[in-house]
Amino acid sequence: MPPVSIILNLLWILFGGLWMAAGWVIAAIIMAITIIGLPWARAAFNIAAYTLLPFGQKAVRRDSLTGRSDVGTGPLGMIGNLIWLLLAGWWLALGHVITALALAVTIIGIPFAWAHIKLAGIALWPIGKVIVPA
């Protein structure tokens, strides 16, 4: 990871990244406890790691990366994302948006606010995404 990404990730943890990553972990644990929610738990744990250290990485659709469709990027993935949206996605996205609004008040916080807005979009529709180096 380049030094700039390391510095940005450290600042990110201080400005809302840690508590939002904790929110993703809590959602993943709740999903894992239900057994039925294990596919969502896996996605939530992956995105929790991305939420903790977002700089130097990006989220992309798995089918655009591999060139072929799979269960998470097809119709079952869409149904999974709709269930996720109802169970946990909306409140994680809301947490990212509220944090972004608080950070956008200052000029220094604007890049971090933008990262939270991007994560809010991922929070709404995480199934079928994979985290790759930027």
Rank of each mutant, 00 (worst) to 15 (best):
P2I: 06
P3S: 13
P3M: 13
V4T: 13
S5I: 03
I7T: 13
I7C: 04
L8C: 07
L10H: 10
L10C: 12
L10P: 00
L11E: 05
L11H: 05
L11G: 13
I13G: 03
F15N: 01
F15R: 06
F15T: 05
G16R: 02
G16S: 08
G16W: 01
L18A: 15
W19H: 14
W19M: 09
A21W: 09
A21D: 04
A21N: 04
A22F: 14
A22R: 12
G23D: 06
W24R: 02
W24T: 00
V25I: 15
V25F: 08
V25T: 11
A27N: 07
A28M: 05
I29R: 14
I29E: 11
I30T: 10
M31C: 15
A32N: 08
A32T: 05
A32S: 11
A32C: 10
A32D: 12
I33P: 03
I33L: 14
I33V: 15
I33Y: 10
L38Y: 07
L38R: 01
A41K: 07
A41W: 04
A43H: 05
A43Y: 04
A44I: 02
A44M: 04
A44N: 02
F45L: 07
N46R: 12
N46P: 00
I47Y: 03
A48N: 00
A48W: 07
A48T: 03
A49P: 02
Y50S: 00
T51Y: 01
L52T: 00
L52E: 00
L52R: 06
L53P: 00
P54N: 07
F55D: 00
Q57G: 01
A59W: 08
V60F: 05
R61C: 01
R62L: 12
R62M: 08
S64Y: 10
L65E: 13
L65R: 14
R68N: 14
D70G: 15
G72C: 09
G74M: 06
G74L: 05
P75V: 15
L76S: 10
L76K: 11
G77P: 00
M78S: 12
I79E: 11
I79H: 10
G80E: 02
G80W: 10
N81K: 11
N81S: 09
L82V: 14
L85H: 04
L87D: 02
L87Y: 09
L87F: 14
L87W: 13
A88E: 08
A88W: 11
G89R: 04
G89W: 11
W91Q: 09
W91V: 11
A93H: 08
G95D: 08
G95F: 01
H96N: 14
H96C: 06
V97Q: 10
T99D: 07
T99F: 06
T99L: 13
A100V: 13
L101G: 14
L103H: 03
A104E: 02
A104Y: 12
V105N: 05
T106V: 09
T106S: 15
I108F: 12
G109R: 01
I110D: 04
I110F: 08
P111R: 02
F112H: 01
F112N: 02
W114I: 15
A115E: 05
A115H: 08
L119I: 05
L119K: 01
L119P: 02
A120S: 07
A120V: 10
A120G: 04
G121W: 14
I122K: 04
I122E: 03
A123L: 11
L124C: 12
W125F: 07
P126R: 09
P126I: 01
I127L: 15
G128A: 11
I131M: 07
P133V: 06
P133W: 03
A134Y: 02
